[in-house]
Computed example of a mutant assay.
Amino acid sequence: MSIRVLVVDDSSFFRRRVSEILNQDPMLSVVDTAANGQEAIEKARLVRPDVITMDIEMPVMDGISAVRAIMKATPTPVLMFSSLTHDGAQATLDALDAGAMDFLPKRFEDIARSKEEAILLLQQRVKAIARRRPFMAARPHPVATTPTRSGLSNSPLGARTGLSSTPSAAPARAVVPERRNPPRRSGKHYQLLAIGTSTGGPVALQKVLTELPANFPHPIVLIQHMPGTFTTAFAARLNSLCKIGVKEAQDGDQLRPGHAYLAPGGKQMLFEGRPGAARLRIMEGNDKVNYKPCVDITFASAAKTYGGNVLAVVLTGMGADGREGARLLKAQGANIWAQDEETCVVYGMPQAVAKAGLATESLPLPMIGEAIVNEMSS
């Protein structure tokens, strides 16, 4: 049974282009199109698609307002199309807060080296989110007051996400995972928290990081697959919502407790020095590495610098980035946690870690922040 897609865009050319690409895949079928957000709401109710692709800027009603209304009336996985600009980044993050699951740049050449790669990427993204149900319970409120925290400047992040095979679509509905107690504290000594994620990561990171206290006793590094032009907006948003400070990592940053450092897009983030006085090295990304930044590379560098005194958490994402880095950390005695399948947008990266036998815990997203605080507090 094919995955049924509703394509929403005010440009008839773009609607036709996206429809042609999706219809090339025998697992995908474009069942209808809409020219604005209001039409999208109505057709989502009538057609009941498995996935909706949505533009942001449209007449009558914009895509963000449409996503918010659709999530209330007929929750459906939504893939946003956005521009790789600062304003585009702000709007895309707003759309993710409203309930969208993922996004792609509207200019496919910005994310692919060839036409064939762009076609495959779009098809795979649609199939990846089609099987997931919108997880409304884990989404933080988009409006929050700025808590008191140490000031940090915000400055870039990003990368291309990988591809993975996906099963057929499941009916879309909001889901609330069963609440259970966080894992018992291990008593292990820590010096670093490292979090890697991809598809669905912006919302997941926001959920986890907003639960960390201002006096969190360790530095935090974040590796999120996201275009570099989005970094300033994403870091600023996290910094305004979190009690900890959040900034984009810069070469030479000294790691400080209670501060999170976001890996810059198109580059790799590593460590140098010794624990307690370590600094970040930001290096140009190698074209032979699919992910820039790459979770495996940062995790491997953490294993070399911090040994086993690391809690590494792998959140929602496509592909298997993070598995090999987690393997190196595990060999040093580090603890590895993975987000559970039920609360992932795409259960790819956490599944790779869990299947390899590396994860000591598989936790639902709403519990991860609390569990981190419980495990890593002095």
Rank of each mutant, 00 (worst) to 15 (best):
N23F: 08
M61S: 12
L79Y: 00
T76V: 09
N36D: 15
V67T: 15
V67S: 07
I64A: 07
K43A: 05
S19A: 15
M58E: 03
I52H: 00
P77C: 07
K43I: 06
D55V: 10
E39C: 05
N36G: 06
R45W: 09
I21T: 09
L28W: 06
M27A: 15
V30M: 06
R48K: 15
V51Y: 04
P59D: 06
G37V: 01
K43H: 07
I41D: 01
Q38F: 11
G63N: 08
V18N: 01
A35C: 10
T76C: 13
A34S: 03
D32A: 15
P59M: 04
M58I: 02
L28Y: 08
D50C: 08
P49C: 08
V47F: 09
M54V: 12
E20W: 09
L46E: 14
R45P: 05
G63Y: 06
N36F: 04
T76N: 01
L79E: 00
G37L: 02
R17Q: 13
V31R: 03
K72E: 13
T76Y: 00
I56Y: 00
V67R: 00
G37T: 04
P49N: 06
V31W: 01
Q38E: 15
A66T: 09
L28S: 12
D55N: 12
A66P: 06
M27I: 11
F81I: 07
D32R: 11
E57P: 02
T33A: 13
G37N: 05
T76H: 01
S82L: 08
I52P: 00
L79N: 00
V47R: 13
L22E: 00
V30R: 02
R48F: 07
S29L: 12
E39D: 12
N23I: 08
A35H: 11
E39Q: 15
S65C: 11
P49G: 08
D55P: 04
T74M: 12
V18C: 09
D32T: 12
M27W: 11
N23D: 15
Q38M: 13
A73I: 14
P75R: 11
T53R: 05
E42P: 04
P75W: 09
D55C: 07
A34T: 01
I70R: 01
K43L: 12
N23M: 08
A44S: 15
S83L: 13
I56A: 01
T74G: 06
P26N: 10
G37K: 02
V30T: 12
V51E: 07
R16V: 09
I56Q: 01
L79K: 02
S19M: 08
A35S: 14
F81H: 03
E20H: 13
A44I: 06
P26Q: 11
A69W: 04
N36P: 04
Q38L: 14
I52D: 00
M54C: 11
